[in-house]
């Protein structure tokens, strides 16, 4: 009798969730670092542009970090695509009436929010990095003056609106993602579960608020 194939982690739905949790953690780390870096916009052009230069000067290290983040993102998305296609088949006929009892808005909007975030990432990269676009007539994107790019971009109301909307999605995604991560990795414990939920919520709100503060500050004329 041929030996049955050994069951490996990534064959299983749980394994795929574990991959999502680990890659999610990497991406969460990037989001925090990115936010901290960008918040320097409040400390003036020299500070922000100086920070941008420092990053650029890292050279290969920067590209290595970008590769890790990209890999994490690709895996994160690949896993969710696999899982979601399975789940769609798991309930081909839905309920006429279904009332959820305890799940959260954040949990229910994970998939949709993820799609929004994906689109946002493409737009955001195009806006500031690859290639870097100008959102207003008469302004030319500068590869070195990050501060000016930010101010110019966020003066446009619809651009700011997109950013605000995306950050709300990010906050929700981070909340349920962070809370789920411990459960999926098997690290959660009933004693800490409510605390973990509080921390995940608080962090999600904080990240979203900080990221929203930047375009809003430009619109409000605080950053100019």
């Amino acid at each position: 009798m041929p030996m049955a194939k050994a069951i490996t982690l990534h064959d299983t739905t749980i394994g795929k969730k574990v991959v999502m949790a680990v890659t999610g953690l990497v991406l969460y780390g990037f989001v925090i670092a990115h936010m901290l870096g960008n918040l320097q916009v409040f400390m003036g052009p020299e500070q922000l542009n100086g920070y941008a230069k420092k990053l650029h000067d890292l050279g290969p290290l920067l590209y290595a970090a970008r590769a890790v983040i990209l890999l994490a993102l690709v895996l994160h998305v690949a896993m969710v695509v696999q899982l979601v296609s399975r789940t769609a088949a798991a309930r081909p006929i839905g309920y006429r009436l279904k009332k959820n009892q305890v799940t959260t808005y954040a949990a229910l909007t994970m998939k949709l929010g993820g799609v929004v975030l994906m689109l946002f990432i493409v737009y955001h990269l195009a806006h500031f990095t690859f290639p870097g676009l100008s959102m207003t007539a008469g302004y030319k994107h500068s590869p070195t003056d990050v501060y000016a790019n930010v101010v110019s971009g966020f003066r446009v109301p619809w651009v700011t609106a997109i950013y605000v909307l995306a950050q709300l999605c990010l906050g929700l995604h981070l909340y349920h993602g962070a809370f789920s991560l411990f459960q999926t990795l098997g690290l959660s414990h009933p004693r800490y579960v409510e605390k973990a939920r509080f921390v995940a919520q608080t962090l999600g709100i904080a990240v979203a608020a900080a990221n929203i503060a930047m375009p809003v500050a430009v619109v409000a004329g605080i950053v100019k």
Partner: peptide, 15 residues
């Protein structure tokens, strides 16, 4: 877990 997946149940997303 392998059997659970083979039966066509969906995954857990911690609702």
């Amino acid at each position: 877990v392998a059997q659970m997946d083979a039966e066509g149940f969906g995954h857990c997303s911690n609702h």
